[in-house]
């Protein structure tokens, strides 16, 4: 089977998804992903010239909410699950690359 996705591409996808793998795991995914992509190529044999792309299969009008605020009182519970909280802020490792307004 020829490679559809190169190892470099796979590493880029992992980096974008912030996932880290051992070399062995990476090789296993390398094989899996290529098999999946090969399967898509098989689907490509279908003649879909007159079919528009489908992202959702439901055509009903989605639910909407009215513009009236309601208060949710569970944030204390969320704070309990946060590793570090300071003055009601969730504390995360500093990201300095991007300037903040």
């Amino acid at each position: 089977m020829g490679e559809k996705i190169s190892l470099e591409e796979l590493k880029k996808v992992a980096q974008l998804a912030k996932l880290q793998f051992e070399e062995g795991e990476l090789m296993r995914f390398f094989q899996d992903v290529n098999e999946i992509v090969a399967h898509f190529e098989k689907l490509d044999q279908l003649d879909l010239r007159d079919v528009s792309p489908t992202s959702h299969i439901s055509w009903s009008q989605p639910p909407v909410h009215a513009d009236d605020p309601t208060e949710w009182k569970g944030e204390e519970k969320v704070f309990q699950h946060a590793p570090v909280v300071w003055n009601r802020y969730f504390v995360v490792p500093r990201v300095v690359e991007k300037e903040e307004r």
Binding site: V84, W86, N87, Y89, F90, V91, V92, P93, R94, V95, V96, E100
Partner: peptide, 14 residues
Amino acid sequence: IHEGLGLPPNSSGV
């Protein structure tokens, strides 16, 4: 926020 009295060093508040 990146600064504030008592904010642990090298961290940001969200």
